[in-house]
């Protein structure tokens, strides 16, 4: 009944006309949301008044409609719409191709970056391999040296410094059974450029007979300074002289660095 009174008051007509104060207006709007009866009434009033006013409208020429559309920049007609659509798809096409180009550029730089990384890693890998090989070589050398030193069957001959180099010293490790000879040259100074140490096995009786059993090539590069030289079976003493690179047929006695008897 309350809504009936409300409806009969005539306020809904003024609501549709747009004549209410803001607070009255809000009240009716709220009521119409809550009460379907009021809502229906508002719609009916609106329909009636739109009908009434429409029927009193003078004829409006179609050009008005077109003029307003033109002002609003609304396209009309099929041809224009089609053109619009093709423009639209062209924009999409351009946007897509630009995106594609950007994508390709990005991928290209990514690939380059990856390639560079691979190259760097390859370099590092080969460096590491070199290091490993180097270490293995050193390791083997060290092992060899240790084996030589530890081998109890070896005869150790200490060679003492001579007139040219009183502080020089060397050791010969000689396995009489296998005849293998190692020289520990760590007590010798580094030979000058173009010179090499030459190892001699000496026979003292019946006369002093030196036999070359090799030179210590790559003296600098051998860190352990233990060198394998040629085999000998009948040495009575060992001597080391400094000779021109490649060695000499006979020892240069003035350049005898060390000497020792077995």
């Amino acid at each position: 009944m309350e809504s009936k009174e409300y409806i009969e008051s005539g306020i809904l007509e003024l609501y549709v006309y747009g004549l209410l104060s803001e607070s009255e207006n809000d009240e009716v709007a709220a009521m119409s949301n809550k009460n379907p009866e009021i809502k229906t009434e508002i719609l009916a009033i609106e329909k009636a008044i739109i009908n009434l006013s429409s029927s009193f409208s003078p004829f409006i020429s179609h050009s008005q409609f077109e003029k307003i559309k033109a002002q609003l920049e609304l396209k009309h007609g099929k041809v224009v719409t089609m053109r619009d659509r093709s423009n639209w798809s062209a924009y999409i096409g351009w946007a897509a191709s630009i995106l594609l180009l950007i994508g390709i550029g990005y991928q290209y730089s990514k690939v380059n970056q990856a390639n560079n990384q691979v190259a760097t890693i390859e370099k590092e890998k080969s460096k590491l391999q070199e290091t490993v090989v180097d270490l293995e070589t050193k390791n083997k050398q060290t092992e060899t040296v240790l084996n030589v030193v530890r081998d109890e069957t070896n005869t150790v001959v200490a060679l003492a410094g001579q007139a040219v180099a009183p502080t020089a010293k060397a050791k010969i490790y000689w396995n009489k059974q296998t005849q293998v000879v190692y020289v520990d040259a760590s007590g010798l100074p580094t030979p000058p450029e173009g010179k090499e140490y030459q190892i001699w096995s000496l026979k003292l009786q019946p006369q002093l007979t030196p036999t070359s059993i090799g030179t210590l090539a790559n003296f600098k590069d051998n860190r352990s300074k233990v060198f394998a030289v040629e085999k000998t079976g009948d040495a009575e003493a060992f001597g080391i002289t400094l000779e021109p690179a490649g060695g000499s047929p006979t020892p240069t006695m003035e350049q005898l660095y060390t000497l020792g008897k077995v």
Binding site: I49, I50, S53, S54, S55, F56, S57, P58, I60, Q64, F65, K67, I68, Q71
Partner: peptide
């Protein structure tokens, strides 16, 4: 839906046809 209704409001206030059409636009 609404051009006729609104145009009747306009022409009821403005008798000049051209001006009324301007207002409608």
């Amino acid at each position: 839906m609404y051009s006729k209704s609104l145009f009747s409001i306009i022409t009821n206030l403005i008798s000049d046809r051209e001006e009324a059409e301007d207002v409608l636009q």
